[in-house]
Design a binder for these strands. Sequence first.
DNA 1: GGAGATGTTTCAAG
DNA 2: GCTTGAAACATCTC
Length: 268
Amino acid sequence: MPELAEVEYSRKQWNPGIGEIVREVRTHPKSRIYREIPAVAVEKGLTNRALVASYAHGKQMMFEFSGGAWLGLHLGMTGKLFVAELDRKEEKRDHLILRMKEQQLIFSDYRMFGKLTLELRDDGSPPPWWQELPPQTTGPDFTKKRHAAFVKRFPKTPLKTLLLDQRGYPGIGNWMADEICWRISIPPHTRSGELTDAQIDSVWKATRQISRDALKHVGDNWGVLPKSWLMTHRWKDGGICPRKHCKAELIRADLRGRTTCWCPSCQR
DNA sequence: GGAGATGTTTCAAG
DNA sequence: GCTTGAAACATCTC
């Protein structure tokens, strides 16, 4: 599930804990989630600290705690963040639980592709890797020029696959990449090197637009995406292209290891 | 039982 | 050093 907008949504799920002190930390020490840092270090590092703020950047999230502790989270394929009452029973897939006065913040992930880091810093600044993340697709530094250079760097890579590269397009995931290709009527398997300058331009525009639209629609309460989007049709067998007057049956096929959906009529 | 799932990392080859 | 492409990771659901 987690792409740009869903990550932003997830980050906000822990907002009720802002300003609250972590009284107890529960972990699953053997979980794969703790491959970057031992669970004990996370328990020690977060106990008695207050959650100060949270940030999202592409698919990455950062939670700032008092005293310069920075908790980085990535949801992988199946990670979830939520708040629960204190009497909620611990479940097998809860990897991190932060118990506060009247609630607990939970990170669960059954497939365990998620990732967790914790860094304690003296100077109050976020970890360097966080500051060096590539420009957000909704921000001012995601320029046409930067995008064009990135496209030209990987001429053999199919456009859809290129859009999944987090170095170029942080936050773009499988459905958004398909949505972008569909919106501008380019087949997802088109090699980057075969795109015209005008097409490269339209990819840039669509990427910005769809990023912004996705954030707007998912919003604070998982808004429903418009029926006019490819996304709302892509998983149905025999799904129909939602473009006006098209009505072609959508195709789903593997492209470089990811399920890809496109319209054989619009995208040629 | 097998295939597939809205993601990243790693490794080998050119 | 770079790009490219496949496999691995772990578990649940259909």
